[in-house]
């Protein structure tokens, strides 16, 4: 978030109040940029208007990739590159390959998922975000309203709406 953006921040101190406030503020025609909280609140992302995440689809794809890689490696080495007779069994001994293919699937899913998560949320080592309020990671719930995206509503009306919805503080940043 660039420092040139103007934000009006409503600070709340209770998770149910902020969840309630989101719909109250929205009903007055004010667009909410985002809400920042110290812990996850169920339903808050949908109330703010974010779309449902597609991370589970990504995770599934990575799982399929992991399974494919594991099975390709095993069948290449055990069937094509250097086939060996082990216990008189077929070269293509699929049941014996279940453990390693399973571990490969899990490994790819986990790392793929976490890397996708970090990229989609812009999380990386050394990232120094322009934090709106230092108490967000402690005990405060902050609703951020971008003034530039709310041309139709005056700044004073936004402040009043935040106060009315139960904000304990209204700050400008």
């Amino acid at each position: 978030m660039s420092s040139t953006t103007n934000y009006i921040l409503g600070v709340y101190d209770d998770e149910d109040e902020v969840l309630h406030a989101v719909s109250e503020v929205k009903s007055k025609g004010i667009k909410i940029e985002d809400v920042f909280t110290p812990f996850p609140i169920h339903g808050l992302d949908r109330a703010v208007g974010h779309e449902r995440t597609r991370l589970p689809i990504a995770a599934f794809m990575f799982g399929v990739l992991g399974l494919t890689c594991a099975l390709s490696l095993i069948s290449y080495t055990m069937v094509f590159d250097w086939p060996m007779i082990i216990g008189g069994k077929d070269f293509f001994a699929l049941p014996n390959w279940i453990p390693v293919s399973f571990e490969g699937t899990v490994l790819f899913t986990a790392f793929g998922l976490v890397i996708t998560f970090c990229i989609s949320n812009n999380l990386y080592p050394g990232n120094q975000p322009d934090l709106l309020d230092l108490r967000i990671t402690d005990d405060k719930f902050v609703m951020a309203i971008n003034v530039d995206k709310n041309k139709k509503v005056s700044a004073d009306d936004i402040k009043k709406a935040l106060k009315d919805s139960g904000a304990i503080e209204v700050n400008v940043k």
Binding site: D45, H50, L113, Y124
Partner: peptide
């Protein structure tokens, strides 16, 4: 450095919860 620039936005938390759930789902087996 190690908190990766965490902001606590509702969008991040929503994705975070999905991620934890999936990681738990694959860690169990």
């Amino acid at each position: 450095l190690f908190s990766l620039g965490w902001t606590g936005s509702s969008k991040t938390w929503a994705r975070y919860e999905y991620m934890s759930l999936i990681l738990a789902g694959i860690s169990t087996p």
